[in-house]
């Protein structure tokens, strides 16, 4: 999968990016979806909370946090969504299908924490 976030041409040195500007996670990273419980609005379904996942793809472009968007914020600071992979057996301990079956979902950066590979 090509990484569209790397600018073409020779890499610059000394460049400092603003907070949230560059994706924090890369494809292949191991992460955990956080287990917090916001009220009012959220887009991380309850069944995904606290589950371990693997980052599969960075979603471009970066976007406003949808929890804030739901209360009328249409612009301002943005972060990335990531398409993450979670095995069905991680979500549903009693899952009866093959161990290879899995789920994919987009999760906002602030909902992911890195775990050691």
């Amino acid at each position: 999968m090509r990484d569209d976030t790397i600018p073409a041409g020779a890499p610059l040195t000394g460049m400092v990016f603003a907070e949230g500007e560059r994706p924090v996670f890369s494809p292949g990273d191991k992460a955990r979806i956080l287990a917090r419980s916001p009220v009012g609005h959220y887009r991380v379904p309850t069944y995904m909370r606290g589950k371990f996942c693997t980052v599969e793809k960075i979603i471009e472009p970066a976007a406003v946090d949808n929890e804030e968007e739901a209360f009328g914020r249409n612009a301002g600071s943005k972060r990335h969504y990531y398409r993450v992979a979670v095995p069905m057996s991680e979500l549903w301990p009693e899952y009866k299908g093959p161990a290879t079956d899995g789920l994919r979902i987009e999760v906002y950066e602030t909902w992911l924490e890195r775990v050691p590979a």
Binding site: S37, P38, V39, Y42, P45, T46, L91, W92
Partner: peptide, 12 residues
């Protein structure tokens, strides 16, 4: 009922 919104039905 406060923390699980009525649309959040995945897995039920």
């Amino acid at each position: 009922f406060v923390k699980r919104l009525p649309n959040d039905i995945g897995g039920l």
